[in-house]
Design a protein around this nucleic acid. Structure first.
Lengths: 251, 251
DNA sequence: ACGGGGCCTTGACCCCGATCAAGAACGGGG
DNA sequence: CCCCGTTCTTGATCGGGGTCAAGGCCCCGT
């Protein structure tokens, strides 16, 4: 039961040496501030599994970018259950959804050992005016956030199997974008419980769908390690909808 | 079957005389551009019921603000069904969800005779740099958009009755903010079909929930005109969840 | 090695809401 | 005025997935 609010601030590597430099809002801000040899505005922090980056109700004073690891953005539903709004993987911005608010409405929690870069909001605000590149990058990230939510909303109306398939496919594609073209094996940083709370499914249903995909030979998994055996089939299950051949394929 | 793409451009009233001046992104931009006596940058348009403001795939070249009437922002789900992402009422921005993209991912269609103000994107982009007020207002609107989507996502996991109750309550509160404190009667600009496609429910279910709320004495309605008889009860139904006493109240 | 607490899986049951079907009410156009 | 398409309502049926229950697994701390 990790619950400490502490987070270790460590020396930041210069943004220019970061692998994700070109797609990172923070690096963009850093460039705008000016190359003073090192990171004038960006702090790096490491979180342990279960450790919050910020909590609901905290003042909004910074935006974060995931460098490695993973987080979940969550809130509490009316009946007190955890409800996961998004998973944040390397390159993602965290905390943007609170822009325009004074307090965070969601909280971000590390799913595993995770390193994030922190960009102070004052700096971001200032550079939005000073630099068209920063403004454009910020709008892009906000647009992506909105797009993700709309996509998520669309998912909510599909069957459990389709949702799981789409989820796994998205994870796969994400890894490919991050690590290379033809990865077919990856580790899910989140539990089945988390997946359920993200997709709006009971844990048992998530589990059942995983087993079904395995018996159908679409994936193989061992714990949180997933291998996609038949990505074509996975894509078909995720997209076509209305292809409810539960287990038996039509002969 | 209205399907014309034409929209009538009419002379704009000066923003300063608009009732929603203070809360309007467009007015904010107009103020920043400078009071040249009239609206240098803002165009007003009137749409008829069924007429699109823009279509999915259209180039993103402006943001709109609803002056009167109502629209729906929609997209197509994978199986081709209409899926409603948001309803836009007076004061709402339309098209912001495409910021950061080159093409609209959703399309906006008028639900009734509707007047909107158009703010060209080039102007908006320029003023974001020039004016802190505009930048701040834009971020606020984007934050609101994100907040709405997150809220919508939360709704999707509740029972039909709760969703309908929450929807009606939101509509009521919205009218009160627009028109005055103690309104209890309003007209829904959208059909039951639209409500269903917004909430992810079958039309029949929407209809049944409306009847249930009526027989329970929570609302009275006649066509699209809704009167809230017991707003306390409505709020209770919308919030508390887990209060599934389908029809029979516990004695 | 042992105990305990998460996490995962599988089975059985049942309820909410989708779907199918049919009719009523409404509204606009000829 | 009637006709016809759309919307709304109500009933009947069925199945996807939530819920409850039980057991196995894994990891961690002692």
């Amino acid at each position: 039961m990790l619950n400490q609010n502490v987070s270790n601030t460590v020396a930041a590597l210069p943004c220019t040496s970061c692998l994700r430099h070109s797609a990172c809002l923070g690096a963009c801000v850093q460039d705008a501030v000016g190359a003073e040899g090192e990171n004038a505005c960006i702090t790096t922090m490491t979180l342990q599994r279960g450790q919050p980056l910020f909590r609901a109700g905290d003042a909004v004073d910074a935006v974060y970018i995931v460098q490695s690891g993973a987080l979940k953005s969550r809130r509490h539903s009316y009946n007190g259950e955890e409800e996961i709004v998004a998973f944040r993987l390397p390159g993602d911005s965290v905390g943007l959804d609170a822009i325009g608010n004074r307090e965070h409405g969601t909280e971000a929690v590390a799913l595993c050992s995770t390193r994030v870069c922190q960009v102070p909001l004052t700096t971001l605000r200032r550079e939005v005016h000073a630099s068209p590149a920063v403004a454009s990058h910020l709008l892009d990230d906000l647009g992506r956030e909105i797009g993700q939510l709309q996509e998520h909303l669309r998912d909510e109306r599909r069957t459990a199997q389709v949702r799981i398939a789409a989820f796994l496919l998205a994870q796969l594609q994400r890894r490919r974008r991050l690590f290379g073209a033809q990865i077919d094996r990856f580790t899910l940083p989140m539990t089945r419980i988390d997946v359920g709370r993200f997709l709006g499914l009971a844990t048992e249903t998530v589990s059942r769908m995983f087993t079904r995909l395995q018996t159908d030979g679409v994936i193989a998994c061992e714990g949180n390690s997933v291998q996609v055996l038949d990505s074509t089939m996975l894509a078909r299950l995720a997209d076509v909808a209305e292809s409810f051949q539960p287990l038996a394929r039509v002969a």
